[in-house]
Design a protein around this nucleic acid. Structure first.
Lengths: 188, 188
DNA sequence: ACCTGAACACCGTTCAAGT
DNA sequence: ACCTGAACACCGTTCAAGT
């Protein structure tokens, strides 16, 4: 007789992964505690046991997930290359989950996301950049904004549209603007 | 005897204004058809008569409202000054209604908002800028992103926090990054 | 033409109860 | 410890009905 396979136990990580999947596929407005429960084969109320703050805390966690990046500065002695690497990493993390971009831009950075900003600032400062905090702020602004504009352009927003993750036109536009900004930061 | 003053008739404009007020004061998640009806002294269902697409169309209209700007190019012959004026106007329009920034960044530009982008491109092209479409895209990215970062920083997100609209630190950071980007665009 | 009331299918969250 | 079921106060939207 077929053994009853025990259900995979619920965990914060599984919940976040499932939530990202729903948001990316159907949009943030359709990310619902009840739908999330369905996706995890569990009643919606079980989620509260693993995510104490309820839905608001879950959304915070999603924002944190797509804004936490890290860059290894080894082999990138020039601040310009280092800054470029941080920007590309940040962009990739945001593009990976277009459904939660609005959260990433709206929620203030907390925990690991805030730590990543501090690390970026420290690395750029160490690499010899004069006003690293101002530069990081300008770079973060550009990364956030360019991803938003790119997703607007490719007609995401409607989750019905198919999104091509490796859009070469978006890549090129991003690099052009990034290059301009880095050049400008060098001169200031 | 006191005359029964006739209620101000409902209109699309009054609905949008009231919706902006609620979103700014209480956050987008609390902008509800029923609450909106209350604010307008009307049953929620009356709104559907003036905004055909329902809530989704209302949110589109809010996004359009805060992304529709215009600049008079007279007296700004240099493309750099002209571009700066567009960016400052765009930033001011977004900062005026922090509650709907997430919509502005997420919804693709339509109608008057799309027209404004075309006008900006045309003006910059006329002013002698080489690749105006690429520049406009980079500038829009920076404006969106810097407003998002600024609102994150000032602790908006929680609508409980008091937001200072003329934040001088935000102004300075914006101008520094803008200047860097414009310098970089000139060289490319 | 414009608004209302009742109704329907959903939400987030609580709390006592099950195992 | 972990999950469920029922319940409560809300949502968006429809539709027939009122004026």
């Amino acid at each position: 007789m077929p053994a009853k396979r025990p259900p995979i136990p619920l965990s914060r990580e599984r919940i976040i992964d499932a939530a990202l999947e729903i948001a990316d596929a159907q949009g943030l407005r359709r990310l619902t505690m009840r739908r999330l429960g369905d996706a995890l084969q569990v009643e919606a109320m079980a989620i509260y046991h693993h995510v104490p703050g309820g839905k608001e805390a879950l959304l915070d966690a999603l924002a944190q997930h797509v804004t936490t990046v890290s860059v290894d500065p080894a082999g990138l002695p020039a601040w310009r290359d280092l800054a470029g690497a941080w920007c590309r990493a940040g962009r990739a993390a945001l593009l990976a989950h277009p459904g939660v971009l609005a959260l990433a831009m709206t929620k203030p950075p907390r925990g690991s996301a805030a730590a990543a900003i501090r690390e970026q600032t420290q690395q750029l400062s160490d690499a010899g950049l004069a006003d690293a905090p101002a530069a990081v702020r300008a770079l973060r602004s550009y990364v956030f904004g360019s991803v938003a504009v790119e997703l607007q352009q490719t007609g995401w927003a409607d989750p019905r549209t198919e999104h091509v993750s490796g859009d070469p036109e978006g890549d090129a536009a991003f690099e052009r603007g990034l290059s301009a900004l880095l050049t400008g930061l060098a001169g200031s």
